[in-house]
Amino acid sequence: MSIQHFRVALIPFFAAFCLPVFAHPETLVKVKDAEDQLGARVGYIELDLNSGKILESFRPEERFPMMSTFKVLLCGAVLSRVDAGQEQLGRRIHYSQNDLVKYSPVTEKHLTDGMTVRELCSAAITMSDNTAANLLLTTIGGPKELTAFLHNMGDHVTRLDRWEPELNEAIPNDERDTTMPAAMATTLRKLLTGELLTLASRQQLIDWMEADKVAGPLLRSALPAGWFIADKSGASERGSRGIIAALGPDGKPSRIVVIYTTGSQATMDERNRQIAEIGASLIKHW
């Protein structure tokens, strides 16, 4: 058993032996400061991975655009179909130039040979490839079927209504393609630790998130040596930015963190910096 498999397999085991986890309101002070700095709403939640207890939250039940963070949920739905014998990670999917949409750094290189379902999930999560996400959405029946999958998990909040890139429109008060921090954190925890997916599929999902290559300026920039993080970021119109993550010290995840912001006029660099500073406060007061 690899170190990674050891880590995921023991998450339920550690729940019975973990020390009490204490919240630190200092992080919420930073979240509120980020709102002031960005001139935008910020949603935040910090969840204990083992118990599911909410440690801190700010606007946990307000809607925010999901942006590309939905791609983790999408690959969770794909893995659920794999577990049920309805899909194979090794199945190759062929597509054409007409299928390519904006920001497809991986799929645009494989027009001649296509990509496997496994490769598409990797591209969608680690590189946020939009065509990969659309191709995967097609395999499960489209955005409405992803919403149905989430409903069956008990998440009646999170919804996907459109495809890439239209889902990134982020119109104020538009509930399409949105979630709430509390709903996203709970759903992510179920995917990573619950019985919905097999152990192998849970491991695969967290491996893809751990290999994320496009979230460096966010929480990863504040991470001390030896800490673990598996994450997925997102960005969209109207100053929207977000990240969902499982992270913790000693090389294993122990908390879920979800951060969303929307409605800012700030630059992408400034949005990144504010999220990184929230992460730094979280780690300092861990």
Score class of each variant (00 low, 15 high):
252 K>S: 10
89 L>F: 08
25 P>L: 08
197 L>V: 03
89 L>P: 06
80 S>P: 01
154 G>R: 05
246 A>K: 01
82 V>E: 04
250 D>M: 10
67 M>I: 03
271 R>P: 08
152 N>K: 14
59 R>G: 01
166 E>M: 10
68 S>C: 01
146 L>C: 04
13 F>L: 14
210 E>V: 12
44 Y>M: 06
81 R>Q: 09
204 Q>A: 11
249 P>T: 05
19 L>T: 15
93 I>F: 05
36 D>E: 15
172 P>E: 14
118 R>E: 14
161 D>C: 02
160 L>M: 08
226 G>R: 07
18 C>A: 14
44 Y>W: 02
7 R>C: 08
182 A>K: 14
251 G>V: 06
6 F>S: 10
25 P>A: 10
182 A>D: 07
228 F>G: 03
179 T>G: 01
83 D>Y: 02
178 T>Q: 01
43 G>D: 01
237 E>W: 05
181 P>C: 05
129 D>F: 00
124 A>D: 00
222 A>T: 13
81 R>L: 08
178 T>H: 02
194 G>I: 05
104 S>L: 05
132 A>T: 00
169 E>V: 08
109 K>E: 12
10 L>F: 13
246 A>P: 01
106 V>D: 07
179 T>V: 00
225 A>I: 10
14 F>W: 11
67 M>H: 07
247 L>G: 03
46 E>K: 06
179 T>E: 00
157 V>G: 07
197 L>A: 01
242 G>D: 02
169 E>Y: 08
228 F>S: 05
267 T>E: 10
158 T>L: 02
202 R>E: 07
11 I>A: 10
44 Y>I: 05
178 T>E: 01
231 D>E: 04
24 H>Q: 08
253 P>K: 06
53 K>E: 09
152 N>D: 14
64 F>L: 11
52 G>D: 05
47 L>A: 07
89 L>E: 05
232 K>N: 01
244 I>F: 01
84 A>E: 15
216 G>R: 08
84 A>N: 13
157 V>I: 13
97 Q>R: 14
237 E>Q: 08
222 A>P: 07
52 G>A: 06
111 L>F: 11
65 P>Q: 03
55 L>Q: 05
246 A>C: 12
171 I>A: 14
60 P>E: 15
241 R>E: 00
284 K>N: 12
61 E>G: 15
132 A>E: 00
24 H>L: 07
208 W>D: 04
60 P>T: 08
265 Q>R: 12
186 T>I: 14
85 G>D: 11
272 N>K: 00
213 K>N: 09
181 P>H: 01
143 P>L: 01
42 V>C: 06
202 R>T: 11
6 F>C: 13
133 A>D: 03
173 N>I: 07
47 L>R: 01
217 P>K: 11
228 F>L: 05
88 Q>F: 13
269 D>N: 10
17 F>Y: 09
121 C>Y: 05
212 D>Y: 05
36 D>N: 11
243 I>E: 02
80 S>E: 11
138 T>K: 15
241 R>H: 01
262 T>N: 08
13 F>V: 11
226 G>M: 05
217 P>C: 11
254 S>L: 09
117 V>C: 03
217 P>E: 12
87 E>P: 03
133 A>C: 03
177 D>I: 00
107 T>I: 05
96 S>F: 12
50 N>T: 15
212 D>G: 07
58 F>V: 06
218 L>I: 04
45 I>S: 04
213 K>C: 10
22 F>Y: 15
285 H>K: 07
158 T>F: 03
61 E>I: 08
188 L>C: 06
252 K>A: 12
165 P>E: 03
119 E>G: 09
162 R>L: 02
74 L>V: 06
229 I>N: 00
113 D>G: 11
224 P>K: 04
153 M>L: 13
52 G>T: 04
172 P>Y: 08
163 W>N: 07
176 R>L: 08
